[in-house]
Amino acid sequence: MSDQVLPADAAPAAPRSGRRRGGDWLLVLRQNGSLLFAIALFALLYLGYHLAHPRGFTTQVLVQNANEAFTLAMVAMAQTIPVLLGGLDLSVGAVMTMVNCIASHLVIGSPGQIALGILACLASGALAGFVNGCVVVYGRIPPIIATLATAAIAIGVALLLRPTPGGKLDEDLNWAMTNSVADFAETFGLADGGKAPWLAPVAWLPVPVVLLVLVVVLVWLPFRRTVTGRTIYAIGSSESAAYMSGLPLNRAKIAAFTLAGFFAGVGGLFLAIQTSSGNADLPQAGAYTLNSIASVVIGGTSLVGGSGGPVGSIFGTLVLRVISFGFRVFDIPPLLQPLFEGLVLLAAVSLGAARALRVRNTLDLFR
């Protein structure tokens, strides 16, 4: 039996497998083309920015860039989840602002009080998102209308807490969270004051970058793999098909908005830590909401839902922020900066809308 000659048609099996693997890679590239484009665009722009920067690629410059990008990255992640459902959340900037004002009252005192204050801020953001989800699901109101109303409520709470900018947060927390990993370890007496040999490879990394990775790895990716997370994509692809499949639609919608509120709350908390104050700034809330939508589109998430993800939105945020960083390096007049930003936002949203208009079936976005 061991010397039996294989049939003539058995030989081509391996090449067919190879062709299939090659086809799989092409399919993956096509499905993630927008994300890869956002990553490549960011890398190109950021390289040009550092080549033109008088201080070059240094830890100080990297830390400053990370601090400026983190809050918008979190708000963009918050915006992505409702967009995956096929809607928009116009309250993400307002929720961020509300949590920013709450943090300016609570994140100070003993370590225990600071920890409780941080938990209260994150819970406030999640609660605001939960309310959004309940209004959308049980009130049967379109997300864009429901969140427009709840955004006004969140701004009202922020103004009640901080009629004028002010407040004070823990100074050690402010220093540790807005600098490098080595500074964080030194501030809190960790890893031999930040000089432990095992910490050296990552000591130069900005804390906001590490925090962003932790949020993605510990919060988004586990949630994405749950039934609820997969249901969010199914709803965005075809809600009727998801319903016929017996998926938990209401639970997924409420969870999506709750998670969006949590992400916005993280952004508001960091903004309070970074500025060591709270500010119920309505124009700022609106600007963050608008830029979050642009970040989502640049990152490759479809405005009709069901395709994309928060990781792409992070790179969309980085693209927007690198453009604003370039204004300082290339000395663009302040009066022209809003014009350039507006053109970028218009181009980004137009590209996303054009792709959606060309699609007759949402499933085509996966092909």
Rank of each mutant, 00 (worst) to 15 (best):
T231E: 01
P338S: 10
A280F: 10
A280L: 07
V329A: 06
I273Y: 05
R321D: 11
S295N: 05
G265C: 04
V266F: 13
S277Y: 03
G265E: 02
G265W: 02
T228F: 02
P222M: 12
L345R: 03
P283D: 12
A256C: 10
I293Y: 04
L221D: 05
A347P: 03
L336C: 07
N279S: 12
T275E: 12
V311S: 06
S240M: 14
L318P: 00
K253N: 07
L269H: 05
S277L: 12
V219Y: 07
P248Q: 11
R321M: 15
V266L: 15
V227T: 13
L249T: 07
A234Q: 08
A255V: 03
L282G: 02
P222R: 05
A242R: 07
I314R: 01
N250C: 08
A255Q: 10
G300N: 05
G286R: 09
I232G: 03
G268I: 07
V215E: 05
A252C: 12
I254W: 07
G316N: 10
V322S: 13
N250I: 03
R251A: 14
M244P: 00
A234F: 07
L249N: 09
S240H: 14
S238Q: 09
F270R: 09
S237H: 04
S324Q: 15
F340E: 00
V319M: 09
